[in-house]
Design a protein around this nucleic acid. Structure first.
Length: 768
DNA sequence: GCCGACTGTCATGGT
DNA sequence: CTACCATGACAGTCG
């Protein structure tokens, strides 16, 4: 990293000197301050993918003409274009005094490096998006555009929305999904102030970052300032140039913002570029409106890193792994490093812009249009910190990848060339289509999985407001809610309702019979009661009532036993001898005889069959004891009495049946618990499913945006390429290819198509 | 009278 | 083998 800094610094110095030599005043300070937002956008762009707001805002700009909602609004956009034209004019006719800000050159890149951490600026990023797109101050901005971005920075910081740095720092893995939850939204509002502070802090870091980025550009320019060796124009008519070089040239030629007093144009540096005389209109036509007129020069290298990462992502199928890569890839992970263009690699040395040179400083230096800039390139964050890494890894990964092939299928190339613009059709149309197809496929998958497509679409439509929970609630079965809905009042309501119903018929008799029945009570009563209460909290009333029935050792609880009302189910295995006697004995008085007989009959009915049998068999102890006593005590009890075989047999049967009864109750309870647990599990799984689907949609959107970004970048780069005559290359005849050595080659399309097909086969084979 | 829920009981298998 | 438990199946009861 240190070497990189040094390299960049030297490059910056060289470039600055070079510019000064050609009479261009470089107001780096202005550049840094005014262009920081874009820079930060580039640097932190990926993280922006996690911000729901960005998605939301971007959706409005996805038409292809969108302006970065965060830092640049439409007004800025056009204003910048106008300024660009002016700057260009200045470039030609005005030779300002050479003025190099030494302080900038010597600026310590350390700070910039630290500031390059993606997490630092996200808040501002997303916030700016909100502000610019939806904020009411657009009008104000309109007039402010020329003031530079420094003010915007503050504004952005001030507007900084919630999501911000905190989220990005800790929730990279969660990605946008985290925003799904209402919590995050609430958090957003709560963190506004915090974001403001963060924004201020980030502002400090930007200059460093900008300096670094600028340094790289300058460095490159320093190199490119030198004449590029022609790379065999003949032969295959293959003209190679370093992609980095192209990008750097682009950036170098790119005006440094509205405030930039430096209309640097590479053409002015290299005489080989005749494009300067070329009418800008032609180039404009070639470029998508989206791309035109971006006054913000960004870190081209990083942009291309993004691009490469996107390419890789495209190569990979849109699957969950994508998301992982997007959000989990650590700054230094192999993936990201592989895609770093290795600015310091000597590859550039061999590149020749002689044959394929960048066009003059056109107004179209919108390589990083605001919209593109705003695109949430998840991968870029990981790429940012990347120093010039070894190009070998990159080569191994990409091999000789035909950019065109990656961007658009061969079959689409031809049509695109014919239909799209006069000379520069949209080479990435296919890519976009692919993105759409991927999304559709995923949607289909979601449908297959039972996910409502309408909901899926809603997810996209209502991305920011949507949450997995809400979605889940929308389609979550009522069965889930019903139990829980009643759960809140289950413990109380169930007991009250059950008691009310039971009291009607059984309350009077229960007191007597149940006191006996209590003896039958199950050993697990206390335990089950607690459990039942817990379950009641969960909301399963049937279970509760059931348990109530099961646990009635305490006669006081009998009031809440609903089964008493309709039960014929008399669980009174044992009746106190006194009760039995009273029931059996003739009443002393005839007056009470009727009532007592009724009571006795009722009690008889309340007695279980075993109790009846026990009473019939004159069993000297209660069924409760028979059933619940431990074996030893039970045997001891039996030994105390002289019992006949019939009695003993009955006692054993009573014990067996009693235990079995409790076992059956427990069994049923367990069964119910199992069902309830399964129900809850299903609910949880459904919730998770909905959440994952939403995340998937987010990833898809992010991917689509990144693809659009790639398309824009490709168009931008390709559109700036000029042949020896200063004319742009025809997309129908040429395509950019990423060579194995890290350079970018301009090759005939036929060759590119062939290579693209070859590239396509490999993954297919790999799948098999 | 039918149906569903609840319960008790039996048979069976496992520990 | 006995005791105990778990569970499916069946039947009875009740609303």
């Amino acid at each position: 990293m240190l070497s990189l800094k040094k390299y960049l610094t030297e490059g910056l110095l060289q470039f600055t000197i070079l510019l000064s030599l050609i009479g261009v005043r470089v107001d780096v300070d202005t550049y840094l301050t005014s262009q920081l937002p874009p820079l930060r956008e580039i640097i932190l762009g990926p993280s922006s993918a996690y911000t729901q707001t960005q998605f939301h805002n971007l959706r409005n700009t996805l038409d292809g003409y969108g302006i970065h909602p965060k830092s640049i609004d439409l007004d800025n956009y056009f204003t910048a274009r106008r300024l660009l034209s002016q700057v260009r004019a200045l470039d030609r006719f005005q030779v300002p005094t050479t003025e190099v800000n030494a302080w900038l050159v010597h600026r310590d890149p350390e700070g910039s490096v630290s500031g390059s951490q993606p997490s630092s600026g996200l808040a501002l990023e997303s916030s700016s998006g909100l502000q610019d797109v939806t904020g009411p101050d657009n009008g104000v901005r309109e007039s402010e555009t020329e003031q530079g971005f420094s003010e915007d920075l503050e504004d952005l910081g001030a507007v900084a929305p919630p999501v911000s740095g905190d989220l990005t720092k800790e929730d990279i893995d969660l990605g946008a999904g985290r925003e799904i939850f209402d919590y995050s939204h609430r958090q957003k509002e709560q963190d506004v102030d915090k974001e403001l502070q963060d924004g201020a802090e980030q502002e400090d870091t930007w200059p460093g970052e900008g300096a670094e980025a600028l340094a790289r550009n300058l460095l490159v320019d320093g190199e490119t300032g030198e004449s590029f060796p022609a790379q065999v124009p003949g032969g295959e008519d293959q003209r190679a140039l370093s992609l980095e070089e192209c990008l750097r040239l682009l950036e170098a030629t790119c005006p440094f913002g509205e405030n930039a007093e430096f209309p640097a144009d590479i053409s002015s540096i290299t005489e080989a570029v005749p494009s300067e005389s070329e009418p800008p209109g032609l180039q404009n036509n070639l470029l998508s409106p989206l791309l035109t007129g971006t006054e913000s020069p960004f870190d081209l290298e990083q942009q291309w890193q993004d691009l490469m990462s996107i390419m890789e992502m495209q190569a990979m199928e849109v699957n969950t792994s994508t998301s992982e890569i997007l959000y989990n890839a650590p700054p230094g992970d192999p993936l990201s490093t592989n895609y770093s263009l290795a600015p310091n690699t000597p590859i550039n040395q061999n590149v020749s812009l002689h044959q394929a040179s960048l066009g003059g400083c056109s107004q179209d230096f919108s390589l990083f249009s605001p919209e593109v800039e705003s695109l949430p390139v998840a991968g870029s964050s990981t790429l940012l910190p990347l120093a010039p890494s070894n190009s070998t890894s990159l080569n191994s990964t990409f091999g000789s990848t035909n950019l065109a092939g990656l961007f658009f299928p061969p079959q689409l190339n031809g049509t695109a060339n014919d239909t799209a613009g006069p000379e520069l059709p949209d080479p990435l149309g296919g890519l976009l289509d692919e993105a759409m197809l991927d999304e559709i496929s995923l949607m289909d998958l979601a449908i297959e999985e039972g996910f409502n497509p309408v909901q899926a679409s809603q997810l996209e439509e209502e991305f920011d407001s949507d949450s997995g929970l809400s979605l889940d609630s929308s389609h979550s079965p009522s069965s889930l809610s019903s139990p829980e809905g009643s759960s809140s009042s289950s413990s109380s309501s169930s007991s009250s309702s059950s008691s009310s119903s039971s009291s009607s018929s059984a309350s009077s008799s229960a007191s007597s019979s149940f006191s006996e029945e209590g003896a039958v009570g199950y050993s697990s009563d206390s335990e089950t009661l607690d459990l039942e209460e817990a379950e009641g909290a969960v909301g399963y009333q049937p279970e509760y009532s059931k348990f109530c029935r099961m646990s009635y050792q305490d006669p006081s609880q009998l009031s809440c036993l609903p089964y008493l009302e309709h039960v014929g189910h008399n669980h009174t295995y044992n009746m106190a001898p006194s009760a039995l006697d009273s029931a059996d004995l003739p009443p002393p008085s005839t007056v009470k005889k009727g009532s007592k007989e009724k009571q006795a009959d009722f009690l008889d009915k309340q007695m279980s069959r075993d109790e009846h049998r026990a009473r019939a068999m004159k069993i000297p102890f209660t069924n409760d004891k028979i059933i619940n006593l431990p074996v030893e005590e039970f045997n001891e009890l039996l030994s105390k009495y002289q019992l006949s075989e019939a009695q003993l047999s009955l006692i054993r049967d009573i014990r067996r049946r009693g235990k079995n009864k409790m076992a059956a109750q427990n069994c049923r309870k367990r069964k119910l618990d199992t069902i309830l647990n399964l129900e809850r599990d299903v609910e949880d799984l459904q919730r998770d499913k909905a959440r994952l689907l939403q995340e998937k949609v987010e990833f898809l959107r992010s991917l689509r945006q990144m693809k659009q970004k790639v398309q824009s970048l490709y168009q931008e780069v390709f559109g700036r390429l000029r042949d020896e005559n200063g004319r742009p290359y025809s997309p129908s005849q040429y395509a950019l290819q990423y060579a194995g050595d890290g350079s970018v080659l301009l090759i005939p399309r036929t060759l590119a198509d062939q290579q693209a097909r070859r590239q396509e086969r490999k993954p297919k084979d790999r799948r098999k």
